[in-house]
Simulated assay, not measured.
Amino acid sequence: MKLQLYVMKTVATRIIGAALILMSILQILDLLDVTTDILDRGLGVAGVFFYAGLRLPRLFEQVAPIAVLAGGLFAFSQLARESAVVAMRASGVSGYRIIGMAIPAVLGVMLLDALCGQVLAPRADPALADWWKNTTPVAERKEVRPRTFRVGADLIMATTASADGRQINAITIFRRNDKGILIEKVESPVARYDGRAWVLDQPKTTRFTGDLAQTSTAASNTWSTALRPNDVQGLLGDDTAPTAASAQRALQDGGSDRPESFYATHLQAAFAGPFVSLVMLLLSAPVALANFRSGQGAILLTGGLAAGLLFLVANGMMTALGESGALSPFLAVWAAPAIFGALAVRTFLALEG
């Protein structure tokens, strides 16, 4: 038990250290761009910390795989240099078991990565965007342009939405029949979600029948749709990656402004994303069996770092192909982790003998 805790602690501390360093670098670079604007708006140091805090979930999501790679390489190279791996193998501990001792540390990173990507960041991003918009000086505010998206067979055009997605401003609904012909247009200054359905305030409805157009108004009207506040946050908020829930809803006519392949790819990526960290651990694992006196350690250390960076590039390229529909979403998301994971295991097996 003490041996397992020692290995896990060694790997975990290196991963945490790498993550903190990488997040600090990204945070500093980000703050260099916005600190002056925050101070000019009179928000003070508290505004800087508020901005930095809301950015943390996205930053961790970005650095988690690289942190595992760097932490694994540092930890395993240290164990190999100190001959700790030789001592463990001499006492009957296999290389597979040594890597298994480090997996709990990576599982913690995977869980935190999934928590940030699927829970924390989707809540922090709209709050940050709303805060930034509300604190922008009136003279510097840009004209808001309407955005369009699709909900089932209906086409929707709207300008802005509240931070919680429960109110849509200046909404226009274009309803079509099964042949795609426009049959009705509904205009409303505000659409509010009351917890069960959307209520349109002072809607103006125009029905098209052949060459005729009939217009009617009402004090309020209920809009029957599968659209939900979470969908509105993604559609009318900043351009962020959809979560598994929002991607699933978009595929089920819950509101979309991109091709079906885009949401199908991100639905797969939501499940595959945390496993990228596990692949990074496997890519760093061969360093534990390296002989640093013969120069093999330097080669494996460099090779592991290069393989990890190449994996990130390949994974990103294939994901982009999946989003555009040029590649199957499942293949686009899972192919790179499977290939690089298999290569890492093959290299480890060859060194283990």
Rank of each mutant, 00 (worst) to 15 (best):
L54K: 01
L56T: 11
R58G: 10
R58D: 06
F60T: 01
Q62M: 14
V63I: 12
P65Q: 03
I66C: 04
I66M: 11
I66W: 04
A67F: 03
V68E: 01
L69M: 13
L69R: 00
L69H: 02
A70K: 00
G72V: 02
L73R: 06
L73Y: 06
L73G: 03
F74R: 02
A75L: 13
A75Q: 08
A75H: 05
F76G: 04
F76Y: 11
F76H: 05
S77T: 11
Q78L: 13
A80F: 07
A80K: 05
E82S: 15
A84D: 11
V85C: 11
V86N: 10
V86E: 11
A87K: 06
M88Q: 08
M88W: 06
M88C: 09
M88V: 05
R89T: 15
A90P: 06
A90D: 04
S91V: 07
V93W: 04
V93L: 14
S94K: 06
S94N: 10
Y96Q: 07
Y96G: 11
R97H: 07
G100N: 08
A102F: 03
A102H: 02
I103D: 02
P104G: 05
G108N: 02
G108K: 00
G108E: 02
V109D: 00
M110P: 00
L111G: 13
L111H: 03
L112N: 02
L112H: 00
D113M: 08
A114T: 04
A114E: 01
L115F: 15
L115C: 09
G117Q: 06
V119I: 14
V119S: 10
L120I: 13
A121I: 00
P122W: 03
P122S: 08
P126A: 05
P126E: 05
P126W: 02
A127W: 15
A127T: 12
L128G: 00
D130Y: 14
D130W: 15
W131E: 04
K133Q: 13
K133H: 12
N134D: 10
N134F: 05
T136V: 08
P137G: 10
P137T: 07
V138H: 11
A139L: 11
E140I: 02
E140S: 10
R141W: 06
R145N: 14
P146M: 09
P146F: 11
R147C: 06
R147H: 13
T148E: 13
T148D: 09
L155C: 03
M157Y: 02
M157H: 06
T159H: 10
T160W: 01
A161C: 03
A163C: 02
A163R: 09
D164V: 07
